[in-house]
């Protein structure tokens, strides 16, 4: 805990959610303060990705109980697009390809939607081009990717870099990275993590969702949580991740059964 007095950005209390009527989240609690980096780990099917999509407002997920406050405000009062403009960002595990929409046009529309909501000046294509080229350097992205359709034909690594570029453009208060390390080779992982680290700030919180400890070597968390069966079973510091790697998830999930 860097600073217990820092602003609480996200307060999750007793969150329950279902997909197609199947309960996935079963009483999840989490508190995230500005400037903190959290890692949520857990075995497949534990509900990690569902949690990220519920926060981002995916329409297929139904919240059936509990509450989530973002900067003290009920997050579920906002539609997905309003959450994004309010500063919630989800880096997708599987970024969506949108043939026919150029990456630069997409990024500019996103930037301007947020700028308009904040009463800032919107950028025309030329002004935005300067900004986006600068930000693209952060993830070592070739400017030619800006002229291509969004994620269309991008490799796994290129898609993930594009997610972080979007984060850089939108400058969210809360960034949720859903399995951002999946499918990345070591070079791509280094670049993506470098981008995320460059974007960390005392005003911004990052929640990483990951199956593997590997990512945490590159983006060092302040808090590590272990999730299983729709709730957080154990929380600790960085050492918890190392212990998990050594002992496996059974160590936590089994411990719960014993309890």
């Amino acid at each position: 805990m860097k600073d217990p007095a820092a602003t609480t950005l996200l307060e999750v209390r007793g969150l329950h959610a279902t997909v197609n009527g199947v309960p996935i989240l079963k009483g999840l609690d989490l508190t995230v303060r500005a400037g903190e980096v959290h890692a949520i780990m857990g075995p497949n099917g534990s509900g990690k990705s569902t949690f990220s999509k519920v926060l981002a407002g995916h329409p297929a997920y139904e919240v059936t109980g509990g509450e989530v406050l973002f900067e003290g405000r009920n997050l579920f009062e906002l539609e997905a697009d309003a959450r994004a403009r309010a500063g919630v960002f989800l880096a997708f595990q599987y970024p969506v390809e949108i043939p026919g929409v150029t990456n630069s046009a997409f990024l500019r529309l996103a930037y301007n939607a947020k700028a308009a909501a904040e009463g800032r000046e919107e950028l025309d294509p030329l002004e935005f081009d300067d900004l986006v080229r600068e930000k693209a350097k952060l993830v070592e992205m070739d400017p030619s990717f800006l002229d291509r359709s969004v994620n269309d034909g991008f490799s796994g690594g290129e898609k993930k870099r594009n997610e972080i570029l979007q984060m850089a453009i939108l400058e969210p208060k809360l960034a949720i990275l859903d399995e951002t390390d999946s499918g990345l080779d070591i070079d791509a992982l280094r670049i993506v993590a470098g981008g995320v680290n460059a974007l960390s700030s005392p005003a911004r919180a990052i929640v990483m969702i990951t199956h593997y400890q590997r990512l945490l070597n590159y983006i060092v968390p302040d808090h590590v949580h272990v999730m299983a069966d729709g709730r957080i079973l154990k929380s600790g510091d960085r050492s918890l991740a190392l212990e998990l790697e050594a002992r496996g998830y059974d160590w936590v999930t089994g411990a719960r059964e014993a309890a």
Partner: peptide, 11 residues
């Protein structure tokens, strides 16, 4: 696709 755009703040 719609959710992806929404998640980036597009109305």
């Amino acid at each position: 696709e719609r959710f992806y755009l929404a998640s980036r703040g597009l109305p």
